[in-house]
Simulated scan of single mutants.
Amino acid sequence: MGRVTVRTPMVRVRDGEPSARVDTLVVEEPLEIRLKGKPLTITMRTPGHDFDLAAGFLVSEGVVRRAADITAIRYCAGATADGSNTYNVLDVSLAEGVAMPEATLERNFYTTSSCGLCGKASLDAVRTIAHWTVAEDPVRFTPEQIAALPDKLRAAQKVFDRTGGLHAAGLFDADGELLCLREDVGRHNAVDKLVGWAVQQDRLPLRGTVLMLSGRASFELTQKAVMAGIPVMAAVSAPSSLAVDLAEESGVTLIGFLRGTTMNVYAGRDRLNLEAASPTPMAAPG
């Protein structure tokens, strides 16, 4: 298995004075995911939980939805001079009857760890391939429960403590208990690793849960929540406009700028026990 962190020499400059130091950095390496021997995608990721990453990616693509859809995930020999395993190539075998992704959805090109599903994803695509709906999920949370999640997420980020260079995705239940946490140099990979853990545990759809993100809430991450059946997504930073559009259409509760006791609820406010009056309508332009 590849290393998660490396030590590297550097020069720290403080108040104009240089000093030689050694720093701990998070590892970023390519992972090629093959489906039944056929290359599907290459993503830059932090080694670790690679099987989860592959399984979660296939959930996000609408290819699989339960553990039985995958018969095997295995590392392939890497492209080294001696033929040894680099642990950077995975092959996934699907159960009989599970269809391969359509050619228009295949990822036979390089995908950066920050890109996610750029180019392919759209509201129509999510509506077409989603296996579950989340709009009817009856789970409810108090603002206090949601406000406690960032600190719980941060306390569980072990690799971040050493590097400061990882995104995190945490899955919490209706009582605010952490079910799973995954870290990765790419925010999309962190969510795929979490969803992959869930599908291999036969937990999909993830009813009654909250997906807590250490960064911003993009359209792609909202899509992954929808595909996994997650009804609530919260982020410490901003959502994108398309993320809000998808959340409103799919019934996901979307929370951004979750910091301390403050938060912005962009969609699905009915899942929060809010006693305040409805927002004041915006004045007409002009």
Rank of each mutant, 00 (worst) to 15 (best):
V4K: 13
V4L: 06
V11A: 09
R12M: 13
R14I: 13
L25M: 14
K38M: 12
I42P: 05
M44Q: 14
R45F: 05
R45K: 13
T46D: 02
H49A: 14
F51T: 00
L53P: 09
L53Y: 12
V59G: 01
E61F: 09
V63I: 13
V64L: 02
D69K: 10
I70S: 01
A72V: 08
I73K: 13
Y75C: 04
C76K: 09
A77C: 05
G78W: 09
A79S: 13
T80P: 04
T80Q: 02
S84M: 11
N85G: 03
T86A: 02
V89P: 04
S93Q: 11
A95Q: 09
A95S: 14
E96L: 07
E102P: 03
E106T: 01
T112N: 12
A130W: 02
W132S: 08
T133W: 04
V134F: 04
D137Y: 07
P138I: 06
V139L: 05
V139A: 10
R140H: 14
T142H: 02
P143M: 14
Q145Y: 06
Q145G: 11
D151P: 00
V159S: 02
T163P: 06
G165R: 08
H167P: 02
A169T: 01
G176Y: 10
E177F: 04
L179I: 00
C180V: 03
D184F: 08
D184L: 03
R207I: 07
S214Y: 06
R216N: 12
A217R: 06
S218R: 01
V226N: 05
A228P: 11
I230Y: 01
P231F: 09
S237Q: 04
G251F: 06
V252P: 00
L254W: 04
F257L: 09
F257N: 09
L258D: 11
R259M: 10
T262V: 14
T262Y: 07
A267M: 07
G268E: 01
R269H: 02
R271C: 08
L272A: 04
E275F: 06
M282W: 13
P285D: 12
